[in-house]
Design a binder for these strands. Structure first.
Lengths: 236, 236
DNA sequence: CGGCTGTTTGATGAGTGTCAACGAATGTGG
DNA sequence: CCACATTCGTTGACACTCATCAAACAGCCG
């Protein structure tokens, strides 16, 4: 099982910081700045499922990029309820919530076995101050994130929420050269429901409906999309 | 009417860029960097209600800070439906959605008469590259915005959505030294419903309920909060 | 005054959350 | 390797929130 997942690994210089999307494909940015960047990235910390990358209120020191596996970012509301606010897959950068006031505001845990790279923010910051292109990239990445949130804010029903998320993941795999129709999906339905703001039962029923209408299934922690156009129709 | 609003104006060096929150109060950051910043800010463009600050797909050149009045940021989804994704009040910075790829992704319009300041991003960028503290501030502001979205993602019912938004505005006025219990609120119920993702009728009924239970009212484009603790209880 | 636009009210139904129970899968210790 | 415990996913019944439709009402401006 672990071996079949291996091909989905992200290379070290393959994260959002070092790549850009052109024609739906993720391509590496070249230049000495990027090399400088790669030099401060500490590579491949392997993690077991459930392992903690960073914790709420811990001092903010690093950003992290997912290398393999899936991670979740958890926010605990004032009533102690855990809410999953983000799901990360290979290439994603984790830890932006710490920049604000020097402490992480969420807790990040591994959903599956996997590994991540570590970027000392202090050094990244210095680098951004020396290389304009790196400063620009950081601004752009954060701007992108803000835009995504703004738009995703829009009102979807249960099916659309689910399909939208799966499509996002599909696009991401596609952009890295993998199949858009079949890819690993190690997240549990409980976590997924929590993330999407749905009851577990609603998610289960929604998945059943999508399977019945031959749009997609999730089996053995793998998504299999039968009808990509069907997905778009659901979101339309 | 316009005169009574005047005291709610934000000063030029009063926006999120030049201030920070300490003990729920917004205080000015000092230092020559901030002065440099103020030098590139072009002051006070007055606008009439309905006026457009920037438009989707227009080339990204400036950030804007609200000086007085209220503004809305509109995203048009693929089906031509308009969705209000942000509401801006004095001190807020508008235009971050343009950094991503050099074009604004939303349209910003004035909800009421008001005015705003203009910051050439090119110059701001240069400045951020020279003054580390400005780069830091920009990073922090964007991080803050990301965090807000992540958290607000959490599941609220209609009443909580409404109360949460009003509380946000209240806090913001308070942080600038105005009353937390009574402040201008020029947004129409239609726009507000759209922003909150509610039907107009639901919003109307929710407001009626809050008024009946003596928590708050909105009259003459003014919010009047009777029971601040009541608000917190609703969100709890 | 009439024609807008914005807000309110009532009736109805769709979509989801909740509760309860069960079945399937996974992990654990002997 | 089996028996058991635990987690995870499924299914049905039901209640409730909220969107929708329809219609009336209020405020505003020419």
């Amino acid at each position: 099982m672990k071996n079949t997942n291996k091909r989905y690994d992200s290379q070290c210089g393959d994260c959002e910081l070092c790549t850009q999307t052109i024609n739906r494909r993720r391509v590496r940015i070249d230049g000495e700045e990027i090399s400088a960047l790669e030099n401060i990235i500490q590579s491949h910390t392997p993690t077991k499922k459930g392992a903690i990358v960073y914790q709420e209120e811990q001092k903010f020191t690093h950003l992290f990029t997912v290398h393999s596996g899936m991670f979740k970012s958890i926010y605990v509301n004032p009533h102690g309820e855990e809410r999953i606010v983000e799901i990360f897959i290979p290439g994603h950068v984790m830890g932006f919530d710490g920049i604000r006031d020097g402490r992480y505001k969420t807790t990040v845990k591994a959903i599956s076995d996997g590994s991540y790279c570590t970027i000392p923010f202090q050094q990244l910051n210095e680098l951004a101050f020396r290389h304009k292109s790196i400063q620009d990239r950081l601004f752009k990445m954060m701007s992108e994130k803000i835009l995504q949130f703004e738009i995703s804010h829009s009102e979807y029903n249960a099916q659309q929420k689910l399909v939208h998320f799966i499509k996002t993941v599909s696009d991401l795999y596609y952009s890295r050269g993998f199949s858009a129709k079949q890819f690993p999906f190690p997240i549990s339905q409980r976590d997924l429901a929590n993330f999407l703001g749905l009851a577990e039962e609603t998610l289960s029923r929604t998945l059943a409906k999508l399977k019945k209408s031959k749009v997609l299934t999730i089996k053995n922690k793998q998504v299999c999309i039968f009808d990509l156009d069907g997905l778009d129709k659901i979101l339309a």
